[in-house]
Each structure stands twice: as C-alpha cells, then as structure tokens.
Design a protein around this nucleic acid. Structure first.
Lengths: 336, 336
DNA sequence: GAGGTGTATTGAATCGATTCAAAAAAGAAC
DNA sequence: GTTCTTTTTTGAATCGATTCAATACACCTC
C-alpha cells in the first residue's frame, strides 16, 4: 500500500541501507553482483526515491525556481523552455511562476522558492528585489536576472541589448525612407520598454529630418495595441505616422489588426511600415508577416541556467553579465 | 549564514520546538503571549520553514503536478492558469510540465512527480497511462485527467464535449449554405482531433448534399496549418472546399495566413469560410478575426483542481466526470 | 601465516518540522 | 486547601535518504 523505502529495499536485498544508497548514488563503489541484487529488489518493490528526504539531507532541492513577467507572451515561454532543457541536462527541474507584472505575486513566488530551498532562482524582475535576492544569496541560493542588464549589480544577469534593438528597428525604418515615425509601447516603468525607446531616440537623433512620436499604452498586449491602432486610424492621413516601431510583437499584432480592419484599410507597409520586437512565432504567421527584432529567447534561458549552475558550484564566483545582441528580421511589414 | 530552524527559534523565544510548531500550524492552541514571543523570534531570525522537512513528515508535498501536451498553445496556458489560481486558494502550488506530445517526456514527468510525492496530478494525457496512474493512486496520489472524457475510467476527468464541438462548428458552416466542407487536423491519434472530426461527420451525415473532405496534417501548429493552406490554394478553384473546420486555432491561423498570402488571395469568408477551435486570444486578434469553438479553458483547470482536492481528502471517493459544453463564437471569418 | 593494501559493506547519526502522549500550569468548585 | 477540569507546554519519536567512520573481507607479498 504505502511506498517502500530504502530500508525495505535493503531488507529484501539482504544488504544495509548504506549499500542501497550507494547503489543509487555511487554505483561504482559497489560490487557488480550487489548492484544487481539491489536493483532487482528495487524493481520488485517498485521503490521510488522520496525527494523530500533527499532534499532535507542535501539542504537544497533539485529544482530551479523561475519567475517571468507574463507566461502568455511566447517570448517567456521560449525562455522557460531554454532554461528547462539546460536544467534537465543536470537532472534539475524548473518550476515556472508568473508574476503578471505584479510585485506581490513576484514576492509570493520568491517566498515559496525560499521555503523550497530551491537550487537557484532565475527571474525576470519587475519590482526592485535586490534586498530579497541578497537574503537568498546569504542562504546559499544563487539568483540570475534575465532580460535585465545591470552591470553594477551583485547578481549575474543575462540580457539583450535593448538600446541596440531599438536603434536597429528605427534605423531600418529610416532606411526605407520613412520620416514620421512613432513608437508604441508602455508602461514606461518597464525597463525593456524604456530602453527600446531610448535606442529609437538615439537613432532618430542622427537624422534631423526624421521625427519620432511616442504613443504610450498601458500594457504590452494585443488589446492595447489594437486600441492604439484604432486611434491612429482615426487620424487624418496627414497626421498619421508613416512607420511604427512597437515595443513588442503582441502590440504590433494589435496594431496590424486595427490597420487591416474593415473600413480602416491602412496599407502595411504601403502607408505605414510596421516593426515589432521579440520575433515570436505568431509574428511570422500574421497575415502581413511582421518584421521584428529577434531576441535569442531560448538561448537566454539556457545561458541563465548555465550561470546559475556555475554559481551553485562556486558561490564566491564574481557575478557575470552576459548581453546578447538582437537581430533584425525583415518581413513583409517593412518591405516595399 | 545558514538558515535557522525551529530549534533556533525555540531557543530564542525560550520555548520548546513543539510550541514553535504549534504557533506555525495551530496558533489557537497557544496562548496569545507565547504566540507573540515566538513570532518575534521568527522575525528576528528571519526564519523560513523548510519545505522538505515538512513534506517528509507529512508524506506528501504541497505541490500539484500538471502535464500538458503543448505549453505553446495558449489553450493550455489558460488551463494551467485556472488550475494555479484554484490551487493557490488552498495554499498549493502547481508545477507545469510540457510533454510535447511525447510519451517519454510524459513518463519522465510522471516519474518526477512520483518522486516528489506530489499532492496530486492533473494531466492532459497523450499515451495510455492508466497503469502509471493506478500506481500513483496506490501510493495515495490522486490524478485527474483533463481534456479527455473517459466515463469508464477509474480516474476523474474534466473535459469538453468535442463531438458536440465538431457538430457545432460544421452545423454553423452548413447554415451558411456551404456544401463542400473540409476538416483540417491531425494526427488522428489525438483523441480530441478524432472526436472533433467525428462530430463533424455526424453533422454532415444529416445533409446529403454536403460533403466533407479530410485533410490530415501531422501536428496542430501554425506551420502545419500554413502548409495545408498552401496545398488548398494550389488547387483549381472548383476543387477547393468552400468552408474549412480546423482542429484548433493554431491550425486555422496557419490556413488563414496561406489564404491571405500575396498571390493566393483566397477571400475569407468569401470563397472559403473558416472556423477553428479553442478560441485562443490570438484568434480574435487575427486580421480576419476567426470564428471558433470556445472551450472554458480556465474553468477546466479550476474544476480539475477542485476535484483533485476533494479526492485528496477522501481517496475512496468515486471518480467524477465533468463534461463542459463548448460554445460557438462567430466572427468575421464565417460571416458574409 | 603474519603483515599490508585496497575494496566492499555496515549502521548509527543527521537533516528540520510535526505529532502526540505526558507533564505542567492555571482555573474552578466546594 | 484539596480535588477535578481545562488549557498550555514539553520533548522524544518520526518521516526516509545520505554520509562517513568503522569494520569486514579479499588478495598480495615475503
């Protein structure tokens, strides 16, 4: 009825519990015949290790805690996927928490991970959680920030150069000969958004004849993008921008929908060229395939876990800061 | 440096470990002054319970293991979200595993959950895992199947009536006056796909003048849908269906993209009416907003956890089988 | 066969929270 | 002030895997 333990296995195989444990963890220390005998007992009893007991003894769990801003954004799903694959290689699991850009939810997950004595934490932070992470570090739990480059910070980070991304996007739009640009994104409190805008501004600054309007929205969602798009559609054609850089692909998809809506008929890229950010799968699947700035999402997740593993081995290691360069992906939405 | 334990707290507060534990779990049994004193000690030491120790003692973890077929499908993300919210209400967490329709990955997650002595398992099964679930049940771990209605099974289930969904979709298409229908979906091994097709066939059977072609694809993805769409576009217009029922929204989005592609110009719904399944957010955000069959995804997840909690309380309870009815959502892709 | 080297196995101690029977303290009743 | 209840507190025992010092055993060598 109830699960069997190492003790039961030991009894059945006629060895001590220590030997059973050795078969499980250091089989090279046990004679082949004994390994075989113990293995048989394990199979016969259907023995399954109790993780809680292992963790208690080891002091830490074999799970990595991960917190992301929005699971509904494929970018983060891909990120998590990359992390998961890398972790699996070391026999670790990833637990995914969704903060929904809510500081309380974020804190709740960190509490939980602390109780679980997770192996480490990978977090796409929303609020300022330096204090919390410091406490975790004191407890021996390393943390890696993703999608946030803070070279000054005491914690390792893996990020993408969003300034460069913003610049890339806008330079591309300018190279098409567009001059009345708009940036659609928000809230500005999100660093990624602010950086992308700053990069865009920098690129515009080099071209005196190009203007950049900022259309702020309150969430990086399809819905918010559609609303902003409807607003643009409502303007006289002289007042419309001739190119838009959206803070992410969800927003650009919303914009695209508003432009293509019956009665609107704003041609993309004819009247308005459109570029997004993240290069999620749905972007290439949009009816006008969307240009975008690609982030190596899975790679970011993978790298974060790599660093985490290294820090778990050597807690005294200096924090590392990896910054990936984004890449311009040109599709129909910015092609003449 | 290292984390403090109940013992440290007890020492500091000048009470026994038993009392500290009571403050944490049964505060009503402890005098108010003592509670206060212990609480202060906890705060001062920054004490955080060790989950592994609790689990070991309790015999089960406070985590629900969940396995879904595809995390990239928003339907499953929503499902997980509903489950998570319901679980949180009882102080439980959800660990999400992604089987990717791969029996080995599925088995790996079930192994893991068994090692973790999870509180229960919610699974959208791919392979036949009755045997495995039976073993879990013997161990005292209840399981609930989602998105799969098997009234004969020994396990509770929460599902949507996919036959009705298929019927609903096709009856709608027929009511538009379309007669040359096609079903695009696969692999047929997935029960949901098979059921939706069966429902479609049943609806067609009632109309002698209506035909139903089956276009089988090898995955329920945007990409596979696009490929199938390209195939349809390549046909002479007389051989094209005049309405398509796609097995899910990812597929219908792929189809839509193929139809709208430059040079293809198949009007939706003019030449081909199109309806999908799941009603994911992206469906309404598509350039031609997609009609779909809505499943109450979050509610399914929530219900599954509710049942799980009940079974965890009373392991002898008879399995329950909840079937939700899908709902037709009409949008532009099937409107004249 | 005594002494030495190396490999294999043993089993008590440990991790930290919870439980529960027993003891202690506080109150109530006469 | 004694007896009986009720409330509060205690602390050893427990969950199950792992570790490690100690022991057992096998195999050489002289």
């Amino acid at each position: 009825m109830s699960a069997s333990s190492v003790r039961d296995v030991a009894l059945r195989a006629g060895v001590s519990v220590g030997t059973v444990s050795n078969v499980l963890n250091h089989p090279e220390k046990v004679s082949p015949e004994t390994v075989e005998r113990v293995q048989r007992a394990i199979d016969e009893l259907g023995f399954i290790r109790n993780d809680a007991a292992r963790q208690l003894r080891n002091g830490r769990s074999r799970t990595i805690g991960m917190v992301v801003l929005d699971v509904r954004n494929p970018f983060f799903t891909d990120l998590a996927r990359g992390a998961e694959d890398e972790a699996a290689g070391s026999g670790l699991t990833v637990t995914l928490g969704n903060s929904d850009e809510n500081p309380e939810r974020e804190a709740t997950y960190l509490d939980l991970f602390e109780q679980q004595r997770v192996y480490g934490v990978v977090i796409s932070a929303y609020a300022d959680i330096t204090e919390r992470l410091t406490r975790l570090k004191q407890r021996g739990i390393p943390a890696v920030l993703v999608d946030r480059s803070s070279p000054d910070s005491a914690f390792s980070s893996v990020a993408v150069d969003d300034l460069a991304g913003g610049r890339l996007a806008v330079e591309h739009l300018i190279s098409l000969g567009r001059t009345r640009l708009a940036f659609v994104g928000g809230p500005m409190g999100i660093r990624q958004v602010a950086d992308r805008l700053e990069g865009a501004r920098a690129a515009v600054a080099a071209h005196p004849d190009v203007s950049l309007e900022v259309i702020e929205i309150d969430a990086l969602s399809v819905l918010a993008g559609r609303a902003a798009g409807a607003d643009v559609v409502g303007r006289s054609s002289g007042e419309r921008p001739d190119a838009i850089f959206a803070a992410n692909d969800l927003v650009s998809m919303g914009l695209l929908q508003a432009f293509a809506m019956q009665g609107a008929d704003v041609a993309v890229p004819g009247q308005i060229a459109l570029i997004g950010y993240d290069d999620i799968d749905f972007a290439s699947a949009a009816v006008v395939p969307l240009s975008s700035i690609r982030q190596p999402s899975a790679l970011i997740g993978k790298t974060a876990v790599e660093i985490l593993l290294a820090e778990a081995q050597d807690p005294a290691a200096a924090p590392r800061h990896v910054v990936f360069q984004p890449e311009l992906v040109v599709r129909a939405s910015t092609q003449a």
